[in-house]
């Protein structure tokens, strides 16, 4: 390992502290998940995760997270575009606000959204007139997930958009392409990796989200019960094996998403660094 003598001091101690803290805080706790899983048989796990109620929760979680992330992908591109390309009063405030979902505790967001969208709330009462219920339905869950996912696509697209050279747009314009066509054929292809990265990160976050959703979801089994909530209720009943089995499915989904995002991100960094 030590082929060349290291000039900068502190490798031993910094590596030591890093690995010690990492092991104590992350690796050992995660290992206990592996240990606990190894005590369970495959059929045991399979029986838990194919329970109708658990399957229904997977469906609810997937559908709501997907719709919320798609809406955020579209709105994220629009927001990034507005923030990068236009100048208008209040732009800085708008830009600073994007991070609010990261800073605002999820429980606070949860109760605020619940009260806004309940039948007597400011927004909910408007929809209630038309007989549309938002809070305590899947629509409510989706709204909470949109809230959580706002920063991801915006922050992924923004730096790429800043780096895109207007030269290409000028060329497209001079060659006679309309603005819409230029956007579709010249700008959008450059943004795809960033959009996908942001979408993937938002989707992953939405699948695991708990705090902002529990209040607005209503938590009706089969209808509005998300997967993290099922794990929570299994834990409250001290049913650790069921909780672990369901958690494994969630972890698997999270890792697949992360893997895909990483693949795309490698390409994305190339664009950011100005390569082809």
């Amino acid at each position: 390992m030590k082929r060349k003598k290291r000039i900068i001091p502190g490798f031993g101690i910094s590596m030591g502290v890093t690995l010690t803290l990492l092991s104590l805080m992350v690796l050992i706790p995660l290992a206990s998940l592996v240990v606990f899983t190894s005590k369970m048989s495959f059929s045991e796990i399979w029986n838990v995760i194919t329970r109708p109620r658990v399957l229904a929760s997977f469906r609810v979680s997937l559908i709501t997270a997907l719709i919320a992330s798609l809406i955020n992908a579209v709105m994220g591109v629009i927001l990034a575009w507005v923030l990068v390309r236009y100048k208008f009063p209040g732009k800085r405030i708008l830009d600073g606000m994007i991070e609010l979902p990261f800073a605002l505790p999820t429980a606070v967001a949860g109760i605020a959204l619940t009260s806004l969208y309940s039948d007597s709330g400011w927004i909910g009462s408007i929809f209630a007139k038309f007989g549309i219920k938002i809070a305590y339905t899947r629509v409510g869950i989706t709204i909470a997930l949109i809230f959580i996912g706002i920063p991801f696509v915006v922050r992924a697209v923004q730096p790429v958009l800043e780096k895109i050279d207007p030269l290409y747009e000028e060329a497209a314009g001079i060659l006679g392409a309309s603005r819409a066509r230029t956007f579709r054929k010249v700008i959008l292809p450059e943004l795809y990796p960033a959009i996908f990265t942001g979408f993937g990160l938002a989707f992953g976050r939405c699948l695991g989200e708990y705090g902002s959703v529990v209040f607005i979801a209503g938590n009706q089994p089969y209808e509005t019960e998300i997967t993290p909530l099922i794990i929570m209720s299994e834990l409250q009943e001290y049913d650790y094996s069921s909780a672990t089995a369901i958690a494994l499915v969630m972890l698997l989904a999270a890792f697949i998403i992360l893997f895909l995002v990483n693949l795309i991100q490698i390409r994305n960094t190339k664009i950011l660094k100005g390569g082809n």
Partner: peptide, 27 residues
Amino acid sequence: LVTLIDLPVTVSPIIAGLIFVLTFGRQ
């Protein structure tokens, strides 16, 4: 190593709680 360090933010908070229950809990 970098991937491992990032791991905690990629797992659901509920799973983060679960792993500590499994590590230090009754079983």
